[in-house]
Amino acid sequence: MTEYKLVVVGAGGVGKSALTIQLIQNHFVDEYDPTIEDSYRKQVVIDGETCLLDILDTAGQEEYSAMRDQYMRTGEGFLCVFAINNTKSFEDIHHYREQIKRVKDSEDVPMVLVGNKCDLPSRTVDTKQAQDLARSYGIPFIETSAKTRQGVDDAFYTLVREIRKHKEKMSKDGKKKKKKSKTKCVIM
């Protein structure tokens, strides 16, 4: 069974824990209790493949930012979460993405942009803004509501699919490099 290491990042209060708990335990946590770091595991079937999701729910508070490099190193894919009623959390996505790329030393890291709290009427981040940002990053965008469960499975499952595509691409690139290195030079 394939294991996928997913990391949920975003500013404090955007609903990272609520999304994760909704996926794992099928219930909505409405009281806000700032996370330092929590880890969850769940076995699911995605596109006919049974897999184990190892999900790291991270601290959004700035005082825990020193811990970010460590979990970013171990993560295979990242859910970059903002709240649709919090423009600052949307603007912060850029910083999370840049930090992930720096730590992973790669421009090509599996990510999904997630606009959470889409059940709320007080939207300050337009869907088109988020779609445009995701398009500019070359990553999928999904709106979710941890409260109603809308888009929750889709967000995590899409990230797994992005990781699969990335692994497939990397193995193809690896095979191309191996083929090239088999060419021999004969000096007579």
Rank of each mutant, 00 (worst) to 15 (best):
G48M: 10
R73H: 14
P121Y: 06
K101M: 10
K16G: 03
L113H: 01
K5P: 06
Q61S: 14
K117L: 15
S122N: 12
K117M: 15
R149E: 09
D47C: 11
S65H: 10
T35H: 00
P34W: 00
C185H: 03
T50E: 11
Y32W: 06
K104D: 08
K179R: 04
D47W: 05
V9K: 01
D105A: 05
K176N: 12
V152N: 07
A18R: 00
A134Q: 14
R97S: 10
A155M: 13
G12V: 07
T124F: 06
K182R: 03
V160A: 05
R161S: 15
V8N: 01
Q129D: 14
K101D: 05
F82I: 12
E162K: 08
T74H: 11
E62Y: 03
R73M: 08
I84H: 13
R164P: 03
V114D: 02
A18M: 12
Q70D: 04
R135D: 14
V109W: 12
L79Y: 03
G60F: 00
S17T: 01
Q70F: 08
T58K: 01
K128D: 08
K165R: 07
K117P: 01
C51Q: 14
I24K: 12
I139G: 10
H27N: 14
L159G: 03
V9P: 15
V44C: 13
V44S: 10
E31K: 01
Y137F: 07
Y157T: 08
D105C: 08
K117D: 13
R68H: 02
M111E: 02
D54E: 14
D132H: 08
D108R: 11
V103G: 06
K165S: 08
V45L: 11
C80T: 04
T183S: 06
R164F: 07
T35R: 00
Q99N: 05
K172E: 06
R149M: 10
S39Q: 10
L23C: 11
T127F: 04
G77P: 03
T74C: 06
Y157S: 10
I46N: 10
S181F: 08
Y137A: 08
V29T: 02
Q22E: 07
L19N: 14
C185G: 13
Q22G: 06
C51K: 14
E49F: 10
F156N: 03
I142G: 03
K169L: 05
E49S: 12
S106H: 08
Q150H: 11
V81E: 09
L56R: 10
D126M: 07
I55W: 01
C80H: 12
K117W: 15
Q131S: 08
V29W: 13
Y71H: 15
D132N: 04
D33Y: 01
K104I: 12
T87S: 07
A66Q: 13
F78M: 03
G77V: 12
L53E: 03
L79M: 06
S122H: 08
G13C: 11
E3M: 13
E162I: 10
I187R: 11
T58Q: 00
D105Y: 13
F156L: 04
A134F: 10
G10N: 01
T58M: 00
L56K: 12
K169T: 11
N86R: 11
E3T: 11
T2A: 11
E37V: 14
F28I: 01
R73W: 06
Y32Q: 01
A130K: 07
V14I: 12
T58S: 09
I46Q: 15
T127V: 07
Y157K: 12
E37I: 09
T127Y: 05
R149C: 05
I46H: 08
F28D: 00
D47E: 10
C185P: 12
V9M: 09
V9F: 05
M188L: 04
I55D: 00
K5D: 07
G10A: 09
E168R: 09
Y32H: 11
K42L: 06
I139V: 06
K5N: 10
G151W: 12
R164N: 09
K184L: 04
R102V: 06
V186N: 11
V125S: 09
E107T: 11
R41F: 02
T127L: 06
I24M: 14
E62F: 02
Q22L: 02
K178L: 06
D92R: 15
K147E: 08
P110Q: 03
G77R: 03
C80P: 01
F28W: 12
T58W: 00
F82M: 12
R164I: 05
L79N: 03
A59D: 00
I36L: 01
R149A: 04
D132F: 09
K177L: 11
Q129F: 14
I21Y: 14
Y64H: 01
M170A: 15
I100W: 09
C80A: 08
V109N: 02
Q150A: 07
Q99H: 12
K117G: 14
E63Y: 02
T158H: 13
D126S: 07
R123A: 11
G77A: 14
I24N: 02
R41Q: 11
T58D: 00
C51P: 14
F78Q: 01
H27F: 15
A59E: 00
R102S: 10
T87I: 09
R102G: 04
D153P: 07
N116V: 13
F78I: 03
S145E: 15
K175S: 07
C51F: 10
R123T: 11
R149V: 06
L79R: 07
K165I: 11
L113W: 14
V14R: 12
S181I: 08
I36H: 00
Y64R: 01
V29C: 04
Q22I: 15
I46M: 12
V160N: 06
N116L: 09
Q99P: 01
D119W: 04
V7Q: 05
D33K: 00
I36Y: 02
K167Q: 05
A130N: 08
E3V: 11
S106A: 11
V14L: 09
P34R: 00
K165Q: 06
F156A: 03
D38L: 00
A66V: 07
E162S: 09
S39A: 07
R97Q: 07
T183A: 07
G13H: 15
C51E: 10
E168M: 13
Q25L: 15
A18Y: 01
K167E: 05
Y96E: 02
E162N: 10
K128M: 08
N86H: 05
V8M: 04
Y64D: 01
T158Q: 07
Q131D: 07
R97N: 07
D69M: 06
R164A: 09
R97I: 15
D57S: 00
E31V: 03
K176C: 10
L6C: 13
F141W: 05
H95A: 14
G174W: 03
L52Y: 14
N86S: 08
A130I: 13
K16P: 15
I187C: 14
L120E: 11
M72K: 15
D132S: 06
V109M: 08
L133S: 07
R123M: 11
R161W: 03
I55S: 02
S181Y: 12
K42N: 10
E162A: 06
D57H: 01
I36C: 00
Q99G: 04
Q25N: 15
D153H: 05
